[in-house]
Design a protein around this nucleic acid. Structure first.
Lengths: 223, 223
DNA sequence: CCGTAAATGTCGTCG
DNA sequence: CGACGACGTTTACGG
């Protein structure tokens, strides 16, 4: 990883055209070949960047101080260095990577294991039930045996309702399943998403991750 | 901006729970208060981060080498430094910022100014036509006087078709406008999006940004 | 390699 | 401050 602090201008031509006037910035070159240009704000997002795979050509002689970064798609990032205040390189090695907990996949697993959270007598048909346009998070049957398609989100927004609507349209063409009801399950459901869901006859339920995990721990100890 | 290269472990507890085992990484502290932990890959995205506004407390004495980053929402990022290989700070000042060109807003302006690109005799009603669920990019009338709602995207995908579908549903309830046709306009339309659009009776058109901009320049010179 | 869905998305804008 | 949509979204996962 190479860290350069320099006064520079930057021009990007690719999916859009962008220009950065001269200013002091951090230029970060990673071992994967990516280059990013950071100001002292904007959280972690750079002002400009080039994602790998790409190649950096550092100018020599005539165009010394000019870095040209190119990728396969023909996108181009040109950095012109005017004054370099710092330049250091560091070998970091391969990172062991991140361990995550609490994302949608985990919610889905917990809910599938405790499907009766949705109602007494409910039974799981399967997780990731395949359809022509993608897998439905959970397919199950309620106490009366009616099919229910469940879409799970951490945060329930309109696009999640649209997604479930597409699945329902498809599932309801299958006579072995129809009629299929929809259930929109999320830790938090945005008001507009709830309105849209209800308007389409889709039920909504908010999930309590901590409580799902808690019961799961209890089950794990009992069996 | 502070740059630290160190062997460290990181724990994040907030919207999810995440842990990073010990490894050499870059820790970037920006003037806006944000903290990010980078490996030597993954383009510009950090392994862990905390967005501003947040506060960093650097441990002293007993918990020296432990940084605790907190935000208002109670999210917590704890970085434990085991070995510091580099530590430098740099005053960058305020960045003059980025000049962009070629995004959706610009496409919309160009197309609105040259609405006859869509067909001879077409007339603009207005850009950003307001509805209860948000503004329609362009509302216009074709040569026959029929209303057309245009949704503009740089890349046309399924969610854009869904968005236009919702607008059309609403607009068609207005007797002064109905019947309203839909037109999905993008620089590039994905096959699946095109299939869905056509299935719903929505026309598709691909926009040539260069040519729109070219004609615009000509117009600018003529008038 | 393409296509879809998730993301601690982030970021701007507008109410 | 919340809601909403764009983003050079990026990234992971399947076919």
């Amino acid at each position: 990883m190479r860290l350069v602090i320099a006064r520079c201008t930057v021009d990007y031509v690719g999916r859009l055209t962008a220009h950065l006037p001269s200013a002091l910035r951090l230029i970060l070159v990673k071992a994967d070949g990516s280059v990013s240009v950071h100001a002292d704000d904007r959280a972690y997002k750079p002002l400009n960047w080039m994602s790998p795979p790409c190649t950096v050509r550092e100018g020599t002689g005539e165009d010394a101080g000019t870095w040209t970064v190119l990728n396969k798609a023909g996108e181009r990032l040109v950095i012109t260095l005017e004054e370099t205040l710092h330049d250091s390189s560091h070998e970091l090695g391969v990172d062991p990577g991140l361990v995550k907990d609490g994302v949608e996949a985990h919610l889905q697993a917990l809910l599938a294991d405790q499907i009766e959270t949705l109602g007494p007598g409910w039974r799981l048909v399967r997780r990731e039930y395949p359809t022509a346009i993608g897998p439905v998070d959970i397919l199950c049957r309620d106490a009366a045996g009616a099919t229910v398609a469940v879409e799970i989100k951490r945060r329930g927004e309109i696009d999640g309702v649209e997604q479930l609507t597409r699945y329902l349209e498809l599932l309801n063409r299958d006579p072995r399943l129809a009629p299929v009801r929809g259930l929109f399950a999320a830790q938090e459901i945005k008001p507009q998403a709830r309105v849209l869901a209800i308007d389409r006859g889709i039920d909504c339920v908010t999930l309590d991750y901590e409580s799902l995990r808690g019961f799961d721990d209890v089950d794990a100890r009992l069996f």
